[in-house]
Design a protein around this nucleic acid. Structure first.
Lengths: 224, 224
DNA sequence: ATTATTAATTTTGCATTCAAAATGCAATGG
DNA sequence: CCATTGCATTTTGAATGCAAAATTAATAAT
């Protein structure tokens, strides 16, 4: 008997599965901001009834990814600059806290893993491979979050992550913003390796503020 | 025509109403931690069908107030010390941010209102009137939160507030903890009136950390 | 032609129903 | 007597059904 065969069978309710799938569709732009969601359309698409779909919509509404208005249904939330100006500072505060907590409890092994993500990210940067860059970037932030050993914090940050991540699909980084972000990541790694919680918190907060600036610049460029 | 008469008619879905009512029941301890929730029992109690009730349960599960396990139903989340040790730092980070942001945009009129809440709170303290003390205390924190002008932050903080508030119903303050909390509130008001964002953030973060200490002390006393 | 009004259709909100899974209990065997 | 198995009951998960509200289309009036 192989050991993996005795792992508990993972069973998910339809509603849970739908929450994840719909979130992905929204974050990746498959469901356009502002577009109306017809329950029947989606329940047909996923081949489920409206009941679990509606349960999922309630949850996504609380996450701010969709908006519900009584008797009039759901629309995919718009992602205005104003929304991002709200979300980024909150994300900054949460990331700062996870950095601070992570420095207290992260293991050497975990730090080493972060370093590997970091180097993979640098490689992607050298090749200007944006998707891979984002992938490793996200792995770093996720690793720090997990090292904070605070599931509540994790949950809150993940709830916001959707909104923040959507911005990536609307805003490309300029060359020098990108360079700056990479430089910031050098300090992030340094602070983490030095277990400098206060410092890491500060850097992460600033990092998020700069991300917001990137989005602002991009949107301004679109206007012009 | 009174101005309040023209306010938009608040139409709420059953599910929304249920979320609020159930949250209140949980926060105030009407639904005991760890107790199983039978859908039929509750839907009968509120005289609604299971459908909107189930929608509400999904939402409350995301807020961490109840736990769902597939095919096995919902239980009211336990409120262990470990849970509070997670929640309080997160709340601290969010409160710190709201303090920081509030100092940027709060009006003189709003500060004056906070001062009135503060004085009402002092009066309740003088009379050792705990319920009134909490009421005004909460009004202060809510006012600061609103002054931050960040609905996203408000939403996040309110999602956590349930968990934190539940602690109040399990932990009474010792006389000197109470005195200390009041003293901290003096600095909160001072920092707010001086529009010292950095300072207010720091005080609020410490304030939440001390609240956690109060809970710890209380639980330790119960053990002994 | 454009707006107002009314009827038809669609869509939502909720209740009901049905199947699948879990729980409790009695019977059986060790 | 206790543990295990099989069965009845309860409870959950999801589909279906139905009424109310909203939207769209069609008609009438200015």
């Amino acid at each position: 008997m192989s050991s993996s065969a005795v792992l508990p069978i993972r069973r998910r309710s339809l509603h849970d599965e739908l929450v994840d799938r719909l979130r992905l569709m929204i974050v990746e732009g498959d469901l356009a901001p502002g577009s109306k969601i017809f329950e029947k359309e989606l329940s047909d698409l996923f081949a489920v009834s409206r009941t679990p779909l509606r349960e999922a919509l309630k949850v996504l509404a609380r996450e701010g990814l969709i908006e519900l208005s009584p008797n009039r249904g759901a629309t995919v939330a718009e992602l205005t600059l104003a929304d991002l100006e709200e979300a980024f500072p909150v994300m900054g505060a949460l990331e700062a806290l996870s950095g601070e907590l992570a420095c207290r409890s992260i293991t050497d092994r975990e730090v080493a893993q972060v370093r590997r993500y970091h180097e993979a990210m640098l490689e992607a940067y050298a090749k200007r491979n944006m998707p891979n860059y984002f992938k490793h970037n996200q792995a770093i932030h996720q690793a720090i979050l997990e090292a904070a050993r605070n599931p509540t914090l994790e949950q809150m940050q993940n709830a916001l992550a959707g909104r923040v991540r959507r911005a990536r699909y609307m805003a490309n980084m300029s060359e020098d913003r990108w360079a700056k972000a990479v430089a910031e990541h050098e300090s992030i790694l340094a602070a983490l390796e030095a277990r400098n919680g206060e410092g890491l918190a500060q850097i992460l907060k600033a990092h998020l503020a700069n991300k917001l600036e990137t989005v602002r610049e991009h949107l301004a460029a679109l206007q012009a």
